[in-house]
């Protein structure tokens, strides 16, 4: 019932909104995977998106978008368009937001955008543009946001454009070459925990006590697969995992925690009690 109602409503919206624009124009856009949405707050204003469903979009397909003249926002992210295709956008005088990121667009493509005087947002990250593209953009007086991460644009280019357009925010992003991946060294075990075999002389505490963080490396050197239980603060058992024969498990724990090792039928074999240091716990044969 409810679903039918929603579908009805949405279709209703689609139809009534569609009235303002030529339906065949919209369906041509939809044919190449575009999504056409009414732009909120304005009559006969449209947002067109290809980045989710229309990634196979090619240059010629953009003529369909050009036919819908009142496009306010256009998202071509990660599609197959090139600089050549952008000539179709020249007539979109209402265009405020344009996504061209992660496309093959280069400086030549940007030259087709210089007449889009209402453009406020332009995303060119991950394209082939250089400072030359930025020079051309200085004519776009309404431009407020420009994204140039992962392009050939230089700091000098950014500074120069900002002189021409002081209100423009240019986001150059993080210089990945400056990020050095440092592999954090795993804390090494500093002590060996004592194996307290079930039925042996030494009994473990009945429950864990809260303590500070550390890691125990459990090594299963027995001749069977085992299960690892944490004996909680109330003395209850919580299964944390299984350790196959010969395998190793790094376990986050806290000091003074009690760990029970059983066989895979839950028969208790022995215990380890965490100390205060990173430790190795060898489950013996």
């Amino acid at each position: 019932m409810k679903k039918a109602l929603i579908i009805g409503l949405l279709l209703g919206v689609g139809l009534s909104a569609g009235l303002a624009a030529d339906k065949s124009v919209i369906s041509a856009i939809e044919k190449s995977g575009g999504l056409v949405l009414p732009w909120p707050g304005e009559q006969d204003a449209w947002e067109v998106e290809f980045h989710l469903r229309g990634r196979d979009l090619e240059d010629d397909d953009l003529s369909a978008v050009a036919a819908l003249k009142t496009v306010v926002a256009l998202n071509l992210r990660n599609t197959k368009i090139t600089s050549e295709g952008l000539k179709h956008l020249k007539g979109l005088s209402k265009l405020k937001r344009l996504h061209l990121e992660r496309t093959a667009v280069d400086d030549a493509g940007v030259s087709h955008l210089t007449g889009l005087e209402n453009l406020e947002y332009l995303n060119l990250y991950g394209t082939k543009i250089t400072d030359k593209a930025l020079d051309q953009l200085s004519s776009l007086k309404n431009l407020k946001q420009l994204y140039v991460w992962q392009t050939e644009v230089t700091d000098d280019g950014v500074t120069k454009l900002n002189k021409a357009l002081p209100n423009l925010k240019i986001v150059k992003g993080v210089d990945l070459s400056k990020i050095v991946i440092v592999k954090k060294e795993e804390p090494k075990p500093e002590e060996n925990l004592k194996w307290l075999a079930v039925g042996g002389p030494e009994k473990p505490p009945a429950k864990s006590k809260p303590g500070s963080f550390l890691i125990i490396t459990f090594q299963n050197k027995s001749n069977q697969d085992v299960k690892l239980y944490w004996v909680d603060y109330g003395g209850g058992k919580k299964l944390y995992g299984e350790i196959s024969k010969g395998a190793e498990r790094k376990q986050n724990t806290y000091s003074d925690a009690v760990w029970l090792v059983t066989d895979n039928k839950d028969k208790p074999l022995g215990y380890f009690v965490a100390g205060t240091k990173m430790a190795l716990a060898v489950i013996p044969k």
Binding site: I7, L10, G14, A17, P38, P40
Partner: peptide, 14 residues
Amino acid sequence: VGLAGLTLPTYFKA
């Protein structure tokens, strides 16, 4: 739903 992705109330509000 041709307008998938658009929020219904938004459209009405708009």
